[in-house]
Amino acid sequence: MPKKPKVAVWKFASCDGCQLSLLDCEDELLAVAGAIEIANFPEASRAVIKGPYDISLVEGSVTTPHDAERIQEVRRVSKFLITIGACATAGGIQALRNFKDVKEFISIVYAKPEYISTLEKSTPIAEHVRVDFELRGCPVNKYQLVEVINAFLNGRKPNTPTYSVCVECKRRGTPCVMVAHGTPCLGPVTQAGCGAICPAYHRGCYGCFGPKETPNTSSLSAWWRRLGVKEQDLVRAFRGFNAYAEPFRKESEAYEQKQ
């Protein structure tokens, strides 16, 4: 019997939700666990098998000097390094510090700022090491996660679309919330993958899968303005869970300057 591929899960600054997606694959978990060797997954197991690993799944962003060193080590022991979720891929919600003075942030939350060791910015993994694949989402879609693991184990490219949420709405038969109800929606500039959940629940997309390929953010902003959205609310909209992803960051900065 050939040796099973070794998979490791690593956590950086995050909420644990993306790695939880693995445990939320209730129907697939035992089958997946049968096909791979879960070599390092502290959230689920106290057993640790030494590297190197065939696949490393990395959750979370880099926010401390220690983590900036640790990600180098993770890269060194990993054949393929896959980032899972908005934190690892774009810096996450904690990247909101990148727009402010982090020292001020520390003093708001902590009484003794000198004890806190943190970096100025929350940055995606790819700013530190080479990344083989980035899976989007806050949280990731668990079916996409299984697809990505499957693809890497079988030496093929993952089948995850880079088009917008709008395509998923059309496929799902959801009437456009922006056209039909005048509800501001980030769907036109946001990458598909969630299954267009928000519009199906009568609310606008809030961009948790990050920018789609070549998004026209300024055109969408103009449409939002026509719907009566204030500039400060546009800044907030682009400054969400993927605030530091370049197209969203630039758009929020453009409107911040206009204010």
């Binding site: 919600i93 510090r97 942030f105 520390i106 708001i108």
Partner: peptide
């Protein structure tokens, strides 16, 4: 690592 929710 701290994430500063109360701040942002």
């Amino acid at each position: 690592p701290p994430r500063f929710f109360e701040a942002f």
